[in-house]
Design a protein around this nucleic acid. Structure first.
Lengths: 221, 221
DNA sequence: CGATTGACGCGACGTTCGTCGCGTTAGTGA
DNA sequence: TCACTAACGCGACGAACGTCGCGTCAATCG
């Protein structure tokens, strides 16, 4: 399943994770192991989820010895963290349609799909879960989300240029208002996420922004 | 630590969990074990968090045998689920000040404190984490949140009566818009949650509601 | 091309987890 | 009060987890 994407991952990891070893010998075998292990981690996450993610299974599947995995990644959390950090390198761009509401709707749809349909949904969900227990994963998730936020903010800044929203609109806050309800339904209230919910979230964020409710100098009592 | 509250829990569990055994013998020993085990679960959650929650430790601390815990609760997820279901019974009421913004602010503050300062913060966090891996906990969390949502919606309905917001305002959506950013920062973007953030979330929800952006018949393209 | 040395493979070890069968205890109802 | 039986206590068991010491391999550099 999803062989094409996984193959892509394989190559990306091989070329981008030479720095992961950090030390003095980023040689071919180490990089090859890194690729195999992270690939196996993603596969295992897809089949058994975060709860069923085991170092022993990852080691067996990747062909790398168990002790090596423990030495280099420290355990399950380290594996998830490494996989998440790789995702940060995998650049992402928001779709820009020239209309703020539509852009935010695409954003919300991306989030919803990213935790349900998408091939990386298991990694995404695992990251949320692992970040609660592990400070390492929490930091990796924070960095990942900061990167995505910075990229997503572009759609709001362009809307400001077009005059759709005030100049001093807080782009990050607009993004938050648009996507937060999606995460809330997925992980907290456990309500289903319908297409109408996504539209409402995007509509609320866009309208609130255009009416100047989400400016940077908002002084709230 | 927090002995008074835990004592309260103890009594509540003893009296309210007679139905938990469900079957034909809700006798004194069973109820006593239930109280001891759930109490130990809360204590362990407070000391070691969800990641460090172990059936064996809960059994030892409660004085109930390990096999019994596995039989009745099935494992760690069952313990968290049972503790969460008890919390649902522990009725909660939102503070009502007569002003929608202030009420929503109190709501957001309650959420933020409920995951950081409060004595039950460990249970709350554990529930979010466990619900990702366990369908049982997910259902318990859904029921819990549905109850809280229904109770919180009152502040919006009263605002509608006062004329602060349109009659056809979607009370649940207003609550969602007010609290979702808090959860988002806590568990997803991993940003700090400041008092200003809480005020902004409440302000946005209150303003959006008063301007008719959150009505039930909102037809979004 | 050969020496160096960091990373890896290997197997064994102690620990913890979750399950099982059986004997005992203690609520329940006559 | 007494028999009944559901629930519990108990100890042992296999399996999986995570760690360790040691021998080997291969990437790097002279």
């Amino acid at each position: 399943m999803t062989r094409a994407i996984l193959k892509c991952n394989y190559i990306c990891i091989m070329t981008s994770n030479t720095h992961t070893s950090g030390g003095s010998r980023p040689g071919g075998r180490t990089a090859r192991n890194t690729a195999a292990v992270l690939q196996a981690t993603l596969d295992e996450l897809g089949e058994h989820g975060y709860h069923g993610l085991t170092v022993e299974r990852v080691a067996t599947r990747s062909g790398v010895h168990k002790a090596t995995v423990y030495r280099r990644w420290g355990g399950v959390d380290g594996l998830v963290s490494a996989a998440l950090e790789w995702s940060t390198a995998h650049a992402w761009e928001p779709t820009r349609t020239g209309d703020l509401y539509t852009d935010l709707l695409r954003l919300a749809e991306t989030v919803a799909q990213g935790f349900t349909d998408a091939p990386e949904s298991d990694l995404s969900t695992a990251s949320i879960a692992a970040a609660i227990s592990s400070a390492t994963v929490a930091e990796a998730l924070r960095a990942f989300m900061a990167d995505r936020h910075a990229r997503a903010a572009v759609v709001v800044e362009e809307a400001a240029v077009r005059g759709e929203v005030p100049e001093d609109t807080d782009a990050h806050e607009v993004v938050r208002v648009a996507v937060a309800p999606v995460y809330y339904r997925l992980f907290v209230s456990r309500e289903p996420v319908t297409a109408a919910d996504l539209r409402r979230a995007a509509r609320t964020a866009a309208d609130a922004a255009s009416r100047g409710l989400l400016t940077t100098d908002q002084r709230t009592s």
